[in-house]
């Protein structure tokens, strides 16, 4: 498939039919974290390193659409100038709307197609806030959570959701004061849980400190032994949500809700049995 043909096919994920990707070795890295922590800059470094190793790398950068106008401003490539003319890098911005059938399922198909076409390293980049975003990143084989200093009470904000899914937590901007404290706080909070905590690394995409260690740790991640409970849970929830969203009466029920004609319980009853 030529590059342009591939780009076109990705615009119509519902029409993609290709065999599912091979899960071992793992190929899909999800990168998530709050706006401004430096996800794009870190992704840029990872992409460069993988391309230097001879890999073909595809990046799918996901941004929310405006729920009001449906429009979206996709600016993730701004910080990735190094990749724009490289034949070994494919970068695609995706707005959450206009993907019929729901993002996680469609993303799975897009990834299968990219893999099938020889893009053996794939990065999903997403804003890590909100439950739907957690679901998007749960499509990935391995997950990197990016944090940074000066964000107040992070653990409180993030709740368990995304930290539970993460394989590595990178505290970026280690050149700024407060980064070490954030890493310490995350470590402390994770020690309280029963499961094996993810690796926590300090790095600075700005100065380059800790970046090669971060990439090495990512490269050394073992293959997932089947989806973890948390990940499976997110996939199940997103599949359930898709059923709801694709229900033929969905928009009618929504209108009745807005008009105060029915309760949420009524609505759920009406949408049952999809």
């Amino acid at each position: 498939m030529e590059r342009r043909e591939l780009a076109r096919a990705l615009s119509n994920p519902q029409d993609i039919s290709c065999p599912p990707r091979i899960r071992e070795p793992w190929s899909v890295l999800g990168v998530t974290g709050s706006p401004g922590v430096g996800k794009s800059c870190i992704v840029d470094k990872i992409v460069k390193s993988w391309v230097d190793e001879g890999d073909k790398v595809a990046v799918l950068a996901i941004d929310p659409s405006s729920p009001v106008t449906g429009g979206a401003l996709l600016g993730d490539r701004m910080r990735m100038s190094s990749v724009d003319a490289n034949d070994s890098v494919f970068f695609r911005s995706i707005a959450t709307r206009n993907v019929p059938g729901g993002i996680p399922a469609m993303l799975d198909r897009m990834i299968d197609l990219l893999f099938h076409e020889g893009w053996r390293k794939i990065i999903i980049e997403t804003v890590g806030s909100g439950q739907s975003e957690v679901r998007v990143v749960a499509v990935a084989d391995r997950i990197l959570l990016v944090e940074g200093p000066g964000r107040g009470d992070i653990i409180q904000a993030e709740k368990a959701g995304i930290i539970e899914l993460s394989d590595i937590i990178a505290v970026n901007k280690s050149d700024l004061p407060g980064a070490e404290k954030v890493a310490q706080e995350i470590k402390l909070s994770l020690e309280m849980s029963d499961t094996k905590p993810p690796a926590i690394l300090l790095c600075s995409a700005e100065s380059g400190d800790g970046i090669s260690e971060l990439i090495e740790t990512i490269n050394d991640l073992p293959n997932a032994k089947g989806p973890s409970i948390a990940k499976a849970r997110e996939r199940l929830l997103s599949a359930n949500q898709e059923i709801l969203l694709n229900h033929p009466d969905f928009s009618d029920v929504l209108k009745s809700l807005v008009a105060d004609e029915i309760s949420i319980a009524d609505a759920m009853a009406l949408l049952k049995g999809a």
Partner: peptide, 23 residues
């Protein structure tokens, strides 16, 4: 509309590549 902003100082070659990949 879905708008993809390239950032500053792109070469014509980079811009064409972006238009292609982004469909």
């Amino acid at each position: 509309h879905e708008v993809i902003y390239t950032g500053l100082r792109r070469t014509p070659e980079q811009i064409v590549r972006i238009v292609m990949d982004e469909d």
